[in-house]
């Protein structure tokens, strides 16, 4: 039940054009886009960046359903946040009943909402076209240089990769828990905090701890940490297309910011 509804970290876009682009390129491009969106304040800048993101969505064939599903999640926050901004910002305002609807507030709310949505779209593009494992691997390669600064980037990404493997297993566990309750005629409606804490979390944590222990054993028996590791060739090389992609995005984002 849950595993049908909760496609957490699933990589739906396998087979789409975006999937064959190297993860590193996508991460760089996403980073560039994010920085640009955060720095953009002017409507024209935002419009240009929206165009960039829209191009990304079209080229990667992101399905509207996925788009909507991800947007839906933050929509409520965007609406509440926007309302707060509108009603609390000072300056020139219209009176609407008991509320002061500030003009400045409206503009601010509009801008922040657009920025938020753009950031979300950028993230969605990455998670749609890249499996979580590839994201972790991409991070490892991009941040590999930190090794020389004594930051254990290798271990951190291994931990991240292993953590990702927990997700589908936990989803299954929660699924089975809900089914077990349903099998005894207890509906979903009564899933209160107390139940979640007591009946679900405790066994879930216990099984995760046990899994963690066995995984640690597996890492040890396979000699992890006993010496320097080999780095094999990347399956997807940073090719010409990726280079062009990075270049195009950097230029477009840069130009957008220059617009004023």
């Amino acid at each position: 039940m849950l595993s049908d509804v909760l496609p957490v970290l699933t990589y739906e876009g396998a087979g789409t054009p975006g999937a064959s682009v190297d993860a590193r390129a996508k991460l760089i491009v996403a980073m560039a886009g994010t920085v640009a969106v955060v720095l953009a304040t002017d409507p024209w800048q935002l419009l240009s960046l929206t165009g960039l993101v829209a191009a990304g969505i079209l080229l990667s064939r992101l399905p509207p359903a996925t788009l909507w599903r991800n947007l839906r999640a933050i929509l409520i926050f965007a609406v509440i946040g926007g309302a707060v901004l509108v009603l609390t910002t000072g300056g020139r305002s219209w009176i609407l009943g008991p509320f002061h609807v500030s003009q400045g507030g409206l503009a601010l709310a509009a801008r922040v909402t657009v920025q938020l949505l753009l950031l979300l779209l950028i993230t969605t593009l990455v998670t749609f076209t890249t499996s979580p494992f590839d994201i972790a691997a991409g991070l490892r390669r991009l941040l590999g240089f930190l090794r020389h600064l004594r930051i254990p980037i290798e271990d951190m990404t291994t931990m991240l990769t292993i953590a990702i493997t927990f997700v589908p297993i936990m989803t299954q566990e929660v699924d089975r828990f809900l089914t077990a309750r349903a099998a005894r005629g207890v509906g979903m409606r009564r899933l209160g905090m107390a139940t979640v804490m007591g009946d679900l979390l405790a066994p879930l944590i216990e099984s995760n701890l046990q899994r963690g222990e066995e995984l640690a054993l597996a890492l040890d028996t396979r000699l992890y940490g006993y010496g320097p590791r080999t780095h094999r060739h990347d399956r997807v090389r940073l090719d010409g297309f990726s280079a062009v992609l990075i270049l195009v995005v950097l230029v477009w984002a840069g130009l957008s910011l220059a617009l004023l």
Partner: peptide
């Protein structure tokens, strides 16, 4: 209708046998 799931014993819904059986 009642279903005893596969490996149902992995899904105890109570700290004691009594609580688990009394759940439904």
């Amino acid at each position: 209708l009642g279903l005893v799931m596969q490996r149902a014993e992995d899904q105890f819904l109570g700290m004691t046998v009594y609580d688990d059986v009394a759940f439904g």
